[in-house]
Amino acid sequence: MGKQIKNSAGSKALTLTAWLIALVALFPFFMMVLISFRVSGDAYEPFYYIIKPTMENYKTVFLHKNYLDWYSNTIVTVVITILLRLLVTLPASYAFSRLKFKGRGFILGLLLATMMVPGETTMVPRYLYFKTLHLLDTKWSIILPEITEVFYLMLMTEFFRSIPEDFSEAARIDGCSHPRILSSIFLPLSGPSIATTVLFSFINIWNNFLDPYLFINSIDKQMITPALKFFQERGGANIPVQLAGASLAIIPILILFTVTQKYFVAGVSSSGIKG
């Protein structure tokens, strides 16, 4: 743990800077909520302008016949994706970290190499490809390509590697099978790692704009982030209503964030067992 700096003036300055970072991070949120209570014409008024707060924007959001659809679509998609992601990634990470087989290094290396390709460069082929697979306008066009993210494979593999060999060796001698070791020894130890995966996956898929915007076209199947753009008026976005929708859309992330915060800070360190 870093020691506190003795010089109290310097220390105060550093604390102040930390608080400043927090306030800078908080201010846009504060504005988002504030503007969501304004009428459209006042959206661009100075930031201290609060006259006549209105609930109309929230009413518009709630009364939109598809808002709950978007919300539930997104939750369903995110949950399915995360579950499938864990289901597929955990055994693979176990294999890459613990099991010896021919081509292990090569396959892992290949996977890591493709990690460098940003998804944005393949949006065109994905669109054409999903069209031939008839996946367009279904949530599977979002879910299927999201299941295998090498980043999480890397995270989990690194974590499993940090679990002492003795743990699994002892279990092997007791006659445990690999699936058994994975589920009863590794899994209980990977709480922080799984929490990290769940949180980061949740944030990334929840906030994904481009994929659902491109691949989904029915209004009732749309996801929450691109769906905010349904709130338009002649000549442009209805800013306060979009922000009202966004303020509501951020709630699940904030809840998950609060719940998992303890876990994921430990999870990224992946070192709880080392000592």
Partner: peptide, 23 residues
Amino acid sequence: VQPTPGNDDDHDAKVNIDLLAGR
């Protein structure tokens, strides 16, 4: 009625994308 997300400029492009998808 099936609106498209985005402003009026986004609309035509999105409709083309959807039509190409065989909507």
